[in-house]
Amino acid sequence: MTESNPNTAASPETELSPSALSVANVSKRYRTPDGNVQAIDDVSLSLAPGDFVALHGPSGCGKSTLLLMAGGLLSPDSGVLEIGGEDPYALGAEARAAFRAERVGFVFQQFHLIPFLDVLDNVLVGELAGTSTNGEFRDRARELLDRFQLGHRLHHVPSKLSIGEQQRVALARAFLRSPALILADEPTGNLDAENAAIILEHLGNFAATGDGAVLMVTHDDRAKAAAGRSVEMREGRLV
């Protein structure tokens, strides 16, 4: 685990390529019944492969919005965003979906496991993205689940798992394709200290391989401490 270092937050001048994630002068505004809300305001951030960055700040400051934008799910109003040197928003919807399947892994506070699929199928659900349906990820899924101490739970549905186990399944799902970028939104928010530590350790280990980067939204001090660097956000801006 590395120490938190907010000063490493990238400036607009930062070299974007070959970053795992490059965000340059990105802004996002929401229209609401009460008027426009500037969710993200001229944010720049860069994550190189091997980075494990914690993004924190008060509720409503734009952390989750930035995470969704970084995941190719929410297009910015302005600025440039690249994952592995490629702008997902330059792609059509279907191509962007395929891009996400290949390059990005997601972990959420609510896990978002599919309730009627067993553990193994939940990890393999990414196969539905269509890039591979010949079972090539089956061994990889079993290996991940073994590593996360879920080898004995392969055919259990999520409701039969503990909270910590469910988050580990979600983590295995995110890791399945060895993505360039893992985006984690409050991954320890529902976990006890022991399970939070396990999740943070696995996220750290993923980043430590140097193959990909982790951007984690969190309020959890333990998580901030676990990340290599920490970036604070307020009112849509990095501070």
């Binding site: 919807a93 279907e94 979906a97 395929a98 891009f99 399947a101 978002h112 990414g126 993205a129």
Partner: peptide, 16 residues
């Protein structure tokens, strides 16, 4: 809806 959200997020196409 949550299932649709996560499937779409991880790259499952709309036609699927």
């Amino acid at each position: 809806l949550p299932e649709i959200g996560i499937l779409r997020a991880i790259g499952v196409k709309g036609r699927t």
